[in-house]
Design a protein around this nucleic acid. Structure first.
Lengths: 344, 344
DNA sequence: TTGTAGGCGTTATCAT
DNA sequence: ATGATAACGCCTACAA
């Protein structure tokens, strides 16, 4: 078993007494090559075990047919579905997908952006790390007219494609739903206010309260670092220890919402009677937990597909036009047991 | 905003009146280049906005520093954690990760294997599609001494790296646990018997019954197509309709186990008193559902890390040696409420 | 319809 | 310590 050399179009050309250009063209069904030659070339290529070298083609054509993806971490339901949507769409168009994780670290994000650039990806799809404030490391892509799509966790100001949901209106809808169920003291589990998906959800929450003449109590707005299960348990216990505890909780993600439910149950409180809960994302756990967790849908797969399509369409156009374009996907309130109260 | 050309080492060489070889070496801290030159080159490269072209380097050196991953679908807890482990390990070693999905289709798997080969990946990690029977499309990698790791869903016979858990012993442990809890009629939710992870789990189940002098009742062995939630509900209802229903269920995954619990609850049965349940994978839902689902751990992240390390180590070795190596990672029974019965 | 030749950006070899 | 040159495999004007 020796290190075998790859068969190249040169080898095929030699064998068939043709030129490499003919081979190259024949393999791509170029119209100027005769049917007969094409057949012959393909057959010989097959027999000789020829495998195209994408690398060489990419170098020559300056097109890699690869989409780079830069996200916090893969193993979260929303993100893995997002990637699934991206990959599926890319695959259909003959594109590869390179995945990199920032682990929510700014430093990693910068490094991965560099690495993706060096790989000469055709386009890049990114959901920002929790830590990231400055986004100048993405300028390199804009400068080279490499299509860049921010998805979900997008920067406030950056002239490029953005694919997201209307977090403000989603936050408003979630809060309004709790109000309609008769809640009057509604707490909010807020994520990092540096990520505007979270600040928008909070803004929707606040406005819903105001428009329904409910007071905004700062004690009921809990700013989480991670929105993790552990943090959720801690914060919920503190919250329920208040003299005047809330009768409703709107959490900016499902993980923290689930922890709130379990925490409340453990303390002997009834959900939704004593405290109604609504989450965000509609993760699989939402329909598994008892009582079922009401939530806001977050169309992950579709966001992935849409992002990939933005890249692919941009690459199709020959002339580049204005790059700023924001796509909003719709969300819905999914009502389950955790928020169904008798109307007051 | 014109299409800007990339700055190359040639541009730097010209500016500094040096040769491209010197630049190339300086950028890699080659020992034969003087400190002074290295500094100067790096500074100029920075100023000119030089970005290395991985593509060209790969073509030249015939090394892509890329690991290809071929799995069924990303958006499943086990798989996304697996990939997370792979990516993390690869990233530390300066490797990229290309992700492809087979969607459990044999045809897609063959195509993706081809695509990964064409990308000249340095190594490939694969978990087989449900459909796959024949694995000859992986021979191309072996022939070219490209390290290939099968993980979790591995083929029965294929001389290469395999990273897996001992499914037989895990199935045995799970069943034994139920027996110890006093179950005497234990059903098994089995996955496709063409994938030996499932046939092994079943074998462990059967042997545990036999060794504990319990009858093996074919009516209690349910062969699933997908082990999905929906199928789980259907099959569980049928099972519980039996004249002589089971008092314990060992499911080959958590999804089906969860559906069994919910189904039983809906029918007024108590878990674990009327029917004890144990799943497989220890997915996040296992600790969320009520009662908590007992399960078998499936060390996804670690399996990913291990697989990536196998690739990286193989690439480090200059001489290739025997390629067959099976790594078994340990599993544990996690006991939660769904299987805790008073001892008989 | 087919062939010729140059180049994509980098690196390894062999020289100086 | 540095330079000249060829080569990696493919594609594409341009020529025939």
């Amino acid at each position: 078993m020796e290190e075998q050399k790859d068969v190249t179009i040169y080898d095929i050309a030699e064998k068939l007494k043709l030129s490499t250009s003919t081979i190259s063209r024949a393999l791509k069904d170029h119209h100027s090559i005769s049917e007969k030659t094409i057949k012959k070339v393909k057959k010989t290529a097959e027999e000789m075990g020829y495998r195209p070298n994408t690398l060489a083609a990419s170098l020559r054509s300056n097109k890699t047919k690869t989409i780079g993806v830069l996200i916090s971490r893969i193993n979260r339901p929303f993100i893995s579905s997002l990637i699934s949507g991206i990959e599926e769409t890319a695959q259909k168009a003959g594109y590869n997908v390179i995945i990199t994780q920032s682990h929510d670290s700014y430093e990693d994000e910068v490094n991965m952006a560099k690495a993706l650039y060096s790989s000469r990806v055709s386009g890049i799809i990114c959901s920002l790390a929790m830590e990231t404030r400055d986004t100048s490391h993405f300028k390199q892509f804009i400068d080279k007219n490499i299509p860049l799509v921010f998805v979900d966790r997008v920067p406030k100001r950056f002239d490029t494609y953005r694919v997201m949901i209307d977090n403000y209106s989603a936050g408003y809808k979630a809060t309004k739903h709790l109000i309609e169920q008769g809640c009057t003291r509604i707490a909010h589990y807020a994520g990092s206010q540096f990520r505007n998906i979270y600040s928008e959800r909070k803004r929707g929450y606040v406005d819903a309260l105001i428009e329904h003449n409910l007071p905004v109590d700062e004690d009921l707005i809990i700013h989480f670092n991670t929105l993790s299960y552990e943090e959720g348990v801690m914060r919920t216990n503190k919250l329920l220890d208040l003299k005047n505890p809330p009768d409703g909780i709107f959490s900016a993600n499902d993980t923290a919402a689930v922890s709130a439910i379990q925490c409340a149950k453990k303390r002997g409180l009834k959900v939704p009677e004593d405290v109604a809960v609504i989450g965000f994302n509609d993760d699989p756990i939402a329909s598994i937990i008892d009582p079922g967790l009401s939530s806001i849908t977050h169309p992950a797969v579709k966001m992935g597909q849409t992002s990939a399509k933005k890249i692919l369409n941009h690459l199709k156009k020959s002339k580049k036009d204005d790059l700023t374009e924001i796509t909003f996907l719709n969300t819905e309130v999914v009502v389950r047991e955790s928020s169904k109260r008798k109307k007051v």
